[in-house]
Design a binder for these strands. Structure first.
Lengths: 217, 217
DNA sequence: TGTACATCAGTGAACGCGCGTTCACTGATGTAC
DNA sequence: TGTACATCAGTGAACGCGCGTTCACTGATGTAC
């Protein structure tokens, strides 16, 4: 059993440690192994080494645990995207490219989170916290798109939200179809990163970028 | 219990009718109701009104039934796309637009098929028949992309397969995120068809289309 | 046309199993005084 | 510093349930002659 180093909480020796977080890890491990449908509440308890009744102290049911995994996934996702975007440095176009690569990297290296976030069948409207976390992740992309369209002359600028939705959809499509880190991946004659980069370049050229405003290097 | 009219086989009064097909319908109904993970082999038997042992005459297990649903889904999908593409008529750009709309229409009107095809966790490499059916659906898009790039001057034509992958990814991304006919849909400030149409227009403009070859109208 | 037989779809009873959930409980931690 | 008490995380036994799967069977359909 591995204890994460990144969360900052560590094991607090309390009865049997930080069970809530351990259950989330259990869910991730089991999703990675058998898919988002392939684990049960009892499985998670067994993985964590506690009795089958113990998880009820922390989650109402299996769905609540799964929603918590998705929530944590969106939070990590947003953090990862924020880091990649790096506030538009060294320049907006390069940072935008990094953003897309980070999205793909997340889908590849964290397929369990990715499944819980997008494929576990949790209705997005159900849990407000979950929705907000998803919105925060999208906001990173949205802000980046804002900076991107600002490179264009003021007249004829496309709406930043549309650009963000386009890039999100394209990236999500590539990640879902070809960029998974698990068995659901389809084969592709090139790395997904290249496919995405080419698509975004063509798309931005279609918007007239880089162009009249001059390339920012 | 509804009997489909489109398949051309109808109920053949044989013991209890065409159970194999009825089980596929059962799976679709149950997926639509409770998601791809939300049905069991016994559920399907109950829905079809037969004993729990009966499905074993037709499918090895639940996964085999699910794979058959996905297979049938890909076949319908390919047929629908072929109809929409209509061999590039009335003109290639219009037909290409219709193709994208048909993809979204399928995801909206057949969310159960869509789930089984793309989200049920069936590894694409597992079943050769399933893979081939998926490939046939993609081939429609691929042929359309071929016709599309043929509108461009021979030098500097992008590879048709890349264009097809880009459009597939974009469409799949929009369909998965916003275009579902079930609870998994996220909200969007515009119809998904419009979002897709705008994206494809911008993308094609980035490719230089319609352009040097002259718009085909 | 009729009879005997082979085929095979569906039955229904049975089984072991693991899941979800509850319950009174235990025992460690935290806190009031 | 010490004692009594409240809190609460985790126990373990128990339960009913439905699932997956098997089995010998039944009875309708198809076919050989």
């Amino acid at each position: 059993m591995k204890w994460g180093k990144g969360g900052g909480q560590g094991p607090r020796g309390y009865h049997h440690g930080n069970l809530r977080e351990t259950l989330v890890r259990a869910a991730l491990a089991l999703i990675a192994e058998k898919g988002p449908a392939g684990f049960t509440f009892a499985d998670a308890a067994r993985w964590a080494g506690v009795s089958p009744a113990a998880p009820y102290r922390h989650f109402r049911d299996r769905d609540a645990l799964l929603a918590n995994v998705a929530l944590q996934g969106f939070e990590r996702f947003a953090a990862m995207l924020t880091t990649a975007w790096n506030d538009g440095k060294p320049d907006v176009l390069t940072a935008f490219d990094n953003l897309g690569k980070a999205y793909l990297a997340f889908a590849r290296t964290e397929p369990a989170y990715y499944s819980a976030m997008f494929e576990a069948g949790i209705a997005p409207g159900t849990d407000p916290l979950l929705r907000e976390a998803g919105d925060r992740a999208f906001a990173v992309l949205r802000d980046a798109a804002e900076r991107l369209v600002a490179l264009m002359p003021a007249q004829g600028r496309p709406p930043a939200s549309m650009v963000a939705l386009h890039v999100w959809s394209m990236t999500h499509g590539i990640a879902s179809l070809f960029g998974r880190g698990d068995a659901a991946r389809r084969s592709l004659p090139m790395p997904p990163e290249e496919l995405l980069e080419a698509a975004v370049l063509i798309y931005l050229r279609g918007l007239g970028l880089p162009g009249d405003a001059g390339p920012p290097r």
